[in-house]
């Protein structure tokens, strides 16, 4: 069930689009619903979004599998999205990713045992002049070094 709170949030987005164009809000609706369900989308939540927006289930499924920001398997409370594209790569991102993996004892795509952190390698996040960088949930962290990463990660609770 989509909570009242989530519905209110979705309604804010629906209001931005012309009448009968509520499906424009589907990307945000999925994010909102995902956030309420341990950051995971399931077939049933997708169906609920479809029903709420009066869309065919498969049309929502198409969106939910096309964009990268949706999760289908367990992720950590903190998702570290490490950019490995060119500018970050040139600035040593690959080594830093290895360091992070070793530090957390997980590979990219995995979640720490305590469920706190998961690491994901992602494509360019549009902060190339701050390379190397990663994003933790909504926030960007730039000009990363091993020390900086250690400090940031150690503060995650």
């Amino acid at each position: 069930m989509i909570s009242i709170r989530a519905k209110n949030q979705i309604d804010v987005w629906i209001a931005k689009y012309p009448k009968d164009r509520q499906s424009s809000a589907v990307m945000q609706a999925l994010k909102i619903v995902q956030a309420e369900n341990e950051n995971i989308l399931s077939a049933s939540t997708i169906q609920e979004v479809a029903d709420y927006l009066d869309m065919p289930g498969i049309a929502v499924q198409e969106v939910a599998t096309f964009y990268e920001n949706y999760n289908y398997k367990k992720v950590g409370k903190y998702v570290i999205r490490f950019c490995h594209n060119i500018s970050c790569m040139l600035n040593g991102a690959d080594d830093l990713i290895k360091h992070l993996e070793n530090k957390l004892g997980v590979k990219t795509g995995e979640v720490t045992l305590d469920g706190l952190i998961s690491v994901k390698k992602v494509e360019c996040l549009g902060a190339c002049v701050g390379a190397p960088m990663f994003q933790i949930n909504e926030k960007y962290f730039e000009n990363l070094t091993i020390d900086k990463i250690d400090k940031i990660v150690d503060n995650l609770k």
Binding site: A43, I46, Q47, P56, G57, A59, Q61, E62, F66
Partner: peptide, 22 residues
Amino acid sequence: GIMEMGGTGRGENLKIEPFLEQ
């Protein structure tokens, strides 16, 4: 008049399938 098949995923993982195997 009912969208039953769709293209899920993207790139070479684009897959033509119905929702939830219904």
